[in-house]
């Protein structure tokens, strides 16, 4: 029964991803003009010019003269074979450019997700069980401020503190000696050393909202009759709370992955730009601005797919965790 559900749920990914690809394509087509218009404008700034024939030639080579739907189906067709097209600006296959950066984006997002859960879960439980205690007030206050501070502002403040008080630039994901080096244990440890700052910047907002989710869920559950049943059995107070209400409140908590992940992916874009991380964000922004459509399209598509997959994972986890969902 679980497997058929998972199978059905995975099947439903197909139309979803199809819709995502359509949206991604429409988004990159939305700006007026195309890459060549931007290119010509750029050339004009440096007083260079391209004659009409060369322009038409280029347009044909990039397939920009064909109607939209043809371009779309060509693009999707190539996608299925793993070909993301060419980047106009970099004159390189898009797949060479995106995978490394997507890998780092996924690493950063997942690490942040784990951080968020690890921090939000105990604090949320504490806040609910010791409602209106000093600790609860502190957690709530920090939570509210975390919720109200935009990622980039937090990043800026931390960078400011780094520069003014420690005299060090805290941006980036790698030290300069590892920036272009191939992967090695040294590079991995170097990454871990740099990862904490983006994780904190990125995770604060989500942690704050997850604390609130956990606290509210648990407060709902704490006074349910089944908690009293457990207490009347003679179970110790700690296990009464951990085994029953916390376990039940865990279900909605886990299902938050569905919206936390899109948030993290979004936040990662902005944070990466501020902290100049070599993740998807900065390159995507650049590609969008220069209308490098296949590169931008690949990023929008992959980032959106990431969150769709996140939703899938959260649905499957929920089915595994909650017998009531399974039963329906």
């Amino acid at each position: 029964m679980i497997w058929t559900y998972i199978f059905k749920r995975v099947l439903w990914m197909i139309p979803f991803l199809f819709a995502v690809s359509l949206v991604a394509f429409l988004l990159i087509q939305a700006p007026p003009g195309d890459y060549l218009t931007t290119y010509v404008a750029k050339l004009a700034e440096t007083n260079e010019a391209l004659d009409q024939a060369a322009l038409d030639n280029l347009r044909q080579r990039f397939g920009l003269d064909q109607p939209l739907y043809v371009q779309y189906f060509k693009w999707v067709g190539n996608l299925l074979t793993g070909d993301f097209g060419m980047s106009f600006e970099w004159r390189q296959p898009v797949s060479d450019l995106v995978w490394g950066r997507m890998g780092l984006t996924v690493t950063l997002s997942l690490a942040t997700l784990l951080f968020t859960w690890a921090v939000a879960f105990p604090i949320g439980v504490y806040s609910a069980v010791r409602k209106y205690s000093i600790g609860d007030y502190i957690a709530t206050t920090i939570g509210f401020i975390g919720l109200a501070t935009p990622n980039f502002l937090l990043a800026l403040i931390l960078m400011y503190v780094g520069v003014v008080h420690f005299g060090a630039d805290v941006g980036g994901l790698f030290s300069s000696e590892y920036k272009n080096a191939p992967w090695s244990w040294g590079k991995f440890f170097d990454l871990c050393q740099h990862l904490w700052l983006p994780i904190i910047v990125l995770g604060t907002g989500s942690t704050a909202s997850l604390i609130r989710v956990m606290r509210a869920n648990l407060l709902d559950e704490l006074h349910r009759p089944y908690v009293e049943t457990a207490r009347a059995k003679g179970l110790s107070e700690f296990w009464v709370i951990m085994k029953y209400p916390v376990r039940v409140a865990l279900n909605p908590f886990v299902s938050t992955i569905g919206w936390v992940l899109p948030n993290l992916v979004s936040g990662a874009v902005v944070t990466a730009i501020v902290l100049s991380l070599p993740t998807a964000g900065p390159l995507m922004l650049q590609a969008l601005l220069s209308q490098d459509m296949y590169l931008a399209g690949a990023f929008v598509l992959l980032l959106s797919s990431l969150t769709v997959i996140g939703m899938l994972i959260s649905d499957i986890l929920l089915v595994l965790l909650d017998p009531r969902v399974r039963y329906e």
Binding site: F16, P262, S266, G267, V270, M284, A296, S304, L306
Partner: peptide, 11 residues
């Protein structure tokens, strides 16, 4: 809801 907002907004 499943779309990451910032990339979409940016685009």
């Amino acid at each position: 809801l499943s779309l990451p907002t910032i990339p979409v907004w940016l685009a």
